[in-house]
Nucleic acid binder design. Structure first.
Lengths: 215, 215
DNA sequence: TCAGTAATTATGCAAGTGTATAATTAAACG
DNA sequence: CGTTTAATTATACACTTGCATAATTACTGA
């Protein structure tokens, strides 16, 4: 008879874990947290639901892991662009701001994903820790870029003032990112990066221009 | 025997509806959308769950009504402060910015409430309409205040530029509001309003100071 | 005072939820 | 090739969910 057609494939734990995390993220982005049930996640990852419990001690665990994965991904995506060599510190900062306000970082799905997670932040302590950490990580990178740009422009400042500038610029980026993601179509293409650059520039007192060579 | 102790009280429809909406909002703020089940809502409103279906055609209907109620409330709360007579347009704008970054508008519960709703915005068309409307309503009020402040400072501008200023300032306020609500304790008291005023001032090119006479 | 009516309760159900547990089975190893 | 082990499936259970339906009950107006 027809015999050894293997009924499933065994994957290394880390690989399967990531597959489950990715399935979770895409599902939350599509249907919200409510739509991300263990059964749906399993179906999307093409496994049976029991496997989730085998790799994660609970669904909450999977959600937490997915959150961490997503936030890390977003920060990396934004920072990567500014890490590529630029002529000046000013351009590096500009690239950072721009990257955060264009796809793939600025994306309707990412925003609703982020909003979905935010609810759980107040309930779960681990979620709160991740949130706090990723927020500060992002803001600290921004602060370094701002400090460099100011030094380059020969503007002196205090630590306290620098902190406030970082908070403000972070808020601009976050706010524009959110609105752009929550209301796609309400802004013309290229409008948000342009506004972001002008605003951040105005706040820190250094005129910023688009970092050329990016699509 | 002990007789006519009425087993429940009949309330006018509008009043009971609002009571149910308020119960829903407080519940979502506390436990997230997930925790806002019909049974819990009914318990908090001190009625039985069947009543919800009697006043709202579905739970989705109740959620939508609660969203509209909340957003309207937030916008009014922010705008109210700037509507009270101020010496100058600059002060009116300052009061608007400040009000959005202090309690009761800036509040951990409000932020998570807002985040909870945001997920539903992509699924439900009515939710999306409400979101769009409240966003533009808020931004339009801001734009008027900015326009007045600029005129007062004898700064001329174009409609396009004015639009972009409003978007930027809105983003600053939203961003700071979000971060302050999501990370209570990460900012010193009074820090966010101060940063908000400086940033909005820097963006539009008009120095703003705290509108005195507010607690 | 006494029906009439709409608000409210009481009860139940079908579907979906996360999770536990035992039975399979693919792969690694000697 | 046979054994072992962990990945994976299969099945079931207890619980919650939103919703429907029928039975009560407080209020109103003639």
């Amino acid at each position: 008879m027809t015999e050894n057609a293997p009924k499933f494939r065994r994957e290394p734990a880390e690989q399967r874990k990531e597959a489950l995390i990715l399935a979770t993220l895409s599902l939350i982005a599509e249907k919200g947290v409510r739509g991300a049930t263990v059964r749906e996640i399993a179906k999307r990852a093409e496994v049976t639901q029991g496997l989730i419990r085998h790799h994660f001690s609970s669904k909450e665990d999977l959600i937490t892991a997915a959150y961490e994965h997503h936030m890390r991904h977003m920060t990396n995506l934004t920072a990567a662009r500014s890490a590529t060599a630029h002529a000046s510190c000013r351009l590096r900062l500009a690239a950072f701001v721009e990257a955060g306000l264009k796809p793939p970082v600025l994306d309707s799905r990412s925003v609703s994903l982020w909003a979905s997670f935010l609810n759980k932040v107040r309930e779960d302590a681990r979620m709160q820790a991740i949130h706090e950490q990723t927020y500060h990580d992002f803001r600290d990178r921004l602060e370094v870029l701002i400090a460099d740009a100011l030094k380059e422009a020969k503007i002196t400042t205090t630590a306290q003032h620098l902190r406030e500038l970082a908070i403000a610029c972070n808020a601009v980026i976050d706010g524009l990112w959110m609105e752009g993601g929550a209301l796609p179509g309400a802004f013309e293409p290229g409008e948000l990066p342009r506004i972001g650059l002008r605003s951040v520039g105005a706040i820190i007192g250094v005129e910023l221009e688009a970092a050329e060579g990016q699509t």
